[in-house]
Lab assay of single mutants.
Amino acid sequence: MSGNGNAAATAEENSPKMRVIRVGTRKSQLARIQTDSVVATLKASYPGLQFEIIAMSTTGDKILDTALSKIGEKSLFTKELEHALEKNEVDLVVHSLKDLPTVLPPGFTIGAICKRENPHDAVVFHPKFVGKTLETLPEKSVVGTSSLRRAAQLQRKFPHLEFRSIRGNLNTRLRKLDEQQEFSAIILATAGLQRMGWHNRVGQILHPEECMYAVGQGALGVEVRAKDQDILDLVGVLHDPETLLRCIAERAFLRHLEGGCSVPVAVHTAMKDGQLYLTGGVWSLDGSDSIQETMQATIHVPAQHEDGPEDDPQLVGITARNIPRGPQLAAQNLGISLANLLLSKGAKNILDVARQLNDAH
């Protein structure tokens, strides 16, 4: 009898209710805020589980004197976190989706994509230029951005401005803007500013005609071990179906173009009346040469937790077992079709030249 009692006690200790789920994140304040929001949602869904947040620095956090596009290494903000995932030191990792490459290392998958916040870019102005827009900034004003995508589009749109690289986390960039006289304004992701509670610093939100956004911008991705079915089931509740389908289309477009950090590629997606609209573009580094096109596809946005595919093969690095396969494939095909259209119009040449120029500098 006593033996059975011990077995029952052991089973209770090993039951999922007692389990601590370890969540990996970057150390920056924004990353911690984003991770806290994901953990809060998981806690609400699984009140019996405990969650421990483990923060670590990544290569991208450490190399702050070089433009991201020049470092010449993929997975700048993800490699150390993936290493911890691989060694079973954490069970899942919360990322900004735009930091996750469209091809993940073997053994990993994006197990959830959370509801997207505003994906557009924002302009934050130096205190002396508050009330201005990019259009009304004085001639030769210097605007800071760490992104080739932003610089290429904005140089084309605002030729009277000069664009220079600015690195560091959000706090560091804002301090550089406010305390030094080098920059009249800087460009940042609206979602990051909003998550930090800095709505009052948003001086201008850039519309798609001015600057399309990065693939996955404004959404959070939760990376897990691809074979860890328990954790895949656990994080599945975080999937937002519309965000998922938009981001599958965007990531398929980028992957098929073979774009990345070192080339200016941008997108804009919208879901309306059962249609998914995808606009994508590529630019030369100075913005003088560009190709942009829009395509659409009829896609039914499923309700969360309709029964999805059981075999769960990944699409552009994403596993969404609780979302039907048909809409996911339709979104992926839309991204591939748009990429093929741009490639047929000469996108590869623009991107190759951009890559060579970026590598040469």
Rank of each mutant, 00 (worst) to 15 (best):
R19G: 13
R22D: 05
G24R: 01
R26M: 01
S28M: 01
Q29K: 12
L30Q: 01
I33K: 01
T35I: 01
T35R: 01
K43R: 10
P47Y: 06
L49E: 01
L49C: 01
L49V: 13
Q50F: 08
F51S: 06
A55E: 15
T59M: 12
D61E: 14
D61W: 06
L68H: 05
S69D: 09
I71P: 08
I71Q: 15
G72W: 06
S75Y: 01
F77N: 01
E82V: 06
A84K: 08
V90A: 07
D91P: 05
V93T: 06
V94K: 03
S96F: 01
K98W: 01
K98M: 01
D99R: 01
L100P: 05
P101A: 12
P101W: 01
T102F: 03
P105D: 05
F108H: 01
R116G: 06
E117T: 06
P119I: 01
H120N: 12
H120Q: 09
D121W: 01
D121L: 03
V123G: 07
T136P: 05
T136A: 08
L137H: 05
E139R: 08
S146T: 08
S146N: 13
S147N: 01
R150L: 01
Q153A: 05
Q155G: 11
Q155K: 13
F158I: 12
E162C: 15
S165P: 14
G168P: 01
L170V: 11
N171L: 12
R175H: 05
K176T: 10
Q180D: 08
E182V: 15
L188N: 06
A189I: 01
A189V: 01
A191K: 04
G192C: 11
G192E: 05
N200C: 12
Q204G: 07
E209L: 05
E209M: 05
C211E: 01
G216W: 01
A219F: 01
G221S: 07
G221L: 05
A226M: 15
D228W: 01
Q229D: 13
D230K: 09
I231E: 01
L232W: 08
L232I: 14
D233W: 03
L234V: 14
L238D: 11
H239S: 12
I248L: 11
F253Y: 13
P264Q: 09
A266P: 01
H268L: 09
T269L: 03
Q275A: 01
L278P: 07
T279L: 06
S284A: 15
D286I: 15
S288F: 10
I291R: 15
A297C: 15
I299L: 10
V301K: 01
P302T: 14
P302A: 12
Q304T: 07
E306S: 11
Q314C: 13
G317F: 01
R321K: 15
G326E: 13
N333Y: 05
I336D: 01
S344V: 06
A347G: 01
I350R: 07
D352E: 04
V353Q: 15
